[in-house]
Amino acid sequence: MDANDLVGRMTEAYGDDVACVARSHKRVYASLAPEHLLAVFDWLMEEVPGLRFGTSTCMDLREGIGVFHHLPVNGTPLVITLKVVAPKPDPRVPSLTPRVPAAGWIEREMADMVGVVFEGHPEPYRLVKAESFPDTFPLRRDFDVARFKEDIGEQPDF
């Protein structure tokens, strides 16, 4: 499927709810609100043959916590990125895991790294942080390595 073609169809189906742009013939970026994520994801799974869940990126942005789902399409160079920004004090994003199990680990990792809550995740436990890890989020911008090492009782220099 062509990138511009997909952008046209997405804009037709969702109008202003999804800000969709084709950066090149193989990269499509779509920004949307968290409440539209599941509907748009379901629509893409139905409309685009060969679509699979690639991975997600989490980022601490000025306006909130960004969660970007990267969805490559088998057999084509196309990668669709769904960008969701959850406002900061209590960031919440609906989980894709009930729909596609491949999202399970990466959502748990993102919850560990930036503290996003994935609503509806079947296994909402820590993946990369052990139980004794202090309740800080290493990918948040206010995370300070030196202070963290001091907190857990490490020598700052060896």
């Binding site: 290493p138 995370f143 390595v145 963290f148 090492k149 490490e154 020598q155 060896f158």
Partner: peptide, 12 residues
């Protein structure tokens, strides 16, 4: 060397 999750070199 600067990684936050590393406890130290093994000799230490």
């Amino acid at each position: 060397k600067d990684a936050y999750s590393v406890a130290g070199p093994p000799d230490k």
